[in-house]
Design a protein around this nucleic acid. Structure first.
Length: 509
RNA sequence: GCCAGGGUAGCUCAGCGGAAGAGCAGGGGACUCAUAAGCCCUUGGUCGGGAGUUCGAUUCUCCCCCCUGGCACCA
């Protein structure tokens, strides 16, 4: 494992409080970061906030506070949620931080020096009320909607990045790297999008109408367009401008939601290419959540508040659900019924009960001492084989961020282990002294399987994995995912078994 | 409107030319270590509609219906 591992979430825009979408992307990144650390890879996991721009300026004005005060308040909401969701980010970038601003300016200076930026007049429709340019796309029946107020034709000088120059290169790059943009339907979208000629990208705003931004280094009358500001975070925090950059860059994964695919798959790569900086290895865009089959919206009042679920069911179960149910290529439906079904069936019944029955029997039949291997049968060979296959599948899918499949692999082992208990019926073996050697093996097998499972679920459910390890009394053992015949030493004494997940009441249907 | 993707068991989805599958939910049974959990058995589908190619189509082709997504400088 020579290369370090670097994963990012978007830096979230602070015009609103964190919602289920933010939580999903961040949990996904966290699971990957924890997995990488678990297998011993040096890992950097970055998330943060995008704090500049018109929307923030306007939101602050509306509340009668300074933009920075507004950002600080939002930052508290995000950081509180990440804490409650057990997010293990290595840094938290805020674009208003000096360390970031300096490097955004360096980034722009370099683009400018290379001749990648030029100034031209922009013609467009400008809404005074919204304080921004609007596109003709927003017209309804040839008119702009009333909430935009008077829309006037306006000319404005701005700086542009020569994005169009990089179009042929980008098309070829995507063709040559089929796994670069995932999933495939998003890649196809970008490819079809690139069939039209690419325009150059406006990367500035006159300071006169937007003050809340990073000054353009070569023209103090302008501030930077927020996307340039935001995207640069991926390199500014890991050492852009110094030889430190090579330690983590290129990023292994940029995790995003589908709505910001273009900025990450077109704007960002072309900017990097203009500066001869290496491309990120993968860009993964997941879908949105629906609630009960509908788009979430404040007006419908069906917005899922992550904090509520964490408070009610625990961060672990919530994280599990986000990883088990969120689809990549499509939108997914979040329903309370489905959440509870997953909770009861997968967590309480399958996993929780397996752990509890296994440890209880070791307590009851061997006074908490994990016995050494005794008499073996074909049943043992079978479960060991299932464990071997599950582990291989697990690693394969974890590396690809296919959590749905990785968890399926884990649950195949859980199912097999539950069947193993019934087919060996330790309670019958315990009644016959002649079966003692067989009972030893069965209990040892269950202890080992449970120990392995605690490691496999750790990236998804850190607290529960910790509780399970505590009950197994294996806190002092090194975390590892290398399959060994013995996670637990001879004569190992386990702790007290406690249910991991309390079964939830489901309303009668 | 244009371009993609999809419509398979109550739900979520896999299969994509040779006898319809999984998980969950539902029903029944034997057991008792365990969170009345687990285990075994089981109900359930003219695979969106129509036409065609083929010895044979859920799977390929065409038409139609329905759904979803994308169509840039809003983050």
């Amino acid at each position: 494992m020579d290369k370090t591992f670097y994963i990012t979430t978007p830096i979230y825009y602070v015009n609103d409080r964190p919602h289920l979408g933010h939580a999903s992307t961040t949990v996904w990144a966290d699971v990957q970061a924890r997995y990488r650390r678990l297998i011993g890879q040096k890992t950097f996991f970055l998330t943060g906030l995008d704090e500049h721009g018109m929307k923030v300026q306007q939101a602050a004005e509306k509340q009668g506070v300074s933009p920075q005060q507004h950002c600080d308040e939002m930052a508290r909401h995000f950081q509180e949620l990440w804490k409650n969701l057990l997010i293990s980010n290595d840094d938290f970038v805020r674009t208003t931080q000096e360390r970031h601003k300096i490097l955004v300016q360096k980034f722009l200076t370099e683009l400018h020096q290379r001749g990648a930026i030029y100034k031209k007049t922009y013609h467009g429709w400008y809404s005074k009320i919204a304080e921004q340019f609007v596109t003709e796309k927003e017209m309804v029946d040839g008119k702009f909607p009333a909430h935009l107020g008077d829309v006037i034709e306006l000319e404005e000088e701005n700086y542009f990045f020569k994005m169009s120059e990089h179009q042929p290169w980008l098309v070829k790059y995507i063709q040559d790297h089929p796994d670069w943009i995932q999933p495939e339907n998003r890649r196809n979208e970008i490819m079809s999008w690139l069939q039209k000629p690419l325009d150059d990208l406006c990367i500035s705003r006159p300071r006169s109408r937007l003050s809340w931004g990073i000054p353009v280094p070569f023209d103090s009358n302008y501030v930077t367009y927020v996307w340039v500001d935001a995207l640069v975070n991926y390199i500014s925090i890991v050492g852009y401008g110094s030889n430190r950059l090579a330690e983590f860059w290129p990023a292994d994964w940029h995790l995003i939601a589908k709505d910001i695919l273009t900025t990450h798959a077109v704007y960002w790569p072309t900017m990097l290419h203009a500066l001869d900086i290496e491309m990120p290895r993968h860009i993964l865009a997941h879908g949105f959540w629906l609630k009960d089959g509908q788009k979430m919206s404040k007006s419908l009042g069906n917005v899922v508040n992550p904090q509520e679920y964490v408070a009610k069911y625990g961060a672990d179960a919530f994280r599990y659900f986000l990883c088990r149910e969120l689809q990549l290529s499509n939108d997914s439906d979040f329903t309370d019924n489905r959440f509870l079904q997953r909770f009861n069936a997968d967590l309480a019944n399958d996993l929780g009960n397996l752990a509890n029955r296994s440890l209880s029997m070791i307590q009851r039949y061997r006074k908490g001492v994990v016995p050494d291997w005794g008499e073996k049968t074909a049943s043992d060979d079978e479960i060991v084989e299932v464990a071997r296959v599950s582990l291989a599948d697990y690693h394969k899918h974890m590396e690809a961020i296919a959590y749905h499949s990785a968890l399926e692999a884990v649950w195949k082992l859980i199912s097999r282990a539950n069947r193993y208990v019934d087919e060996n019926a330790p309670w019958k073996l315990a009644k016959d002294p002649a079966s003692s050697a067989r009972l030893d093996t069965v209990l040892r097998m269950l202890a080992e399987t449970t120990a392995l499972l605690s490691h496999l679920i750790a990236p998804f459910m850190p607290t529960i994995a910790g509780k399970l390890e505590e009950q197994l009394n294996m806190k002092t053992l090194p975390p590892t995912l290398v399959p060994t015949p013995n996670f637990l030493p001879a004569s190992h004494v386990i702790g007290k078994p406690e249910p991991l997940f309390p079964r939830q009441q489901v309303e009668a249907r």
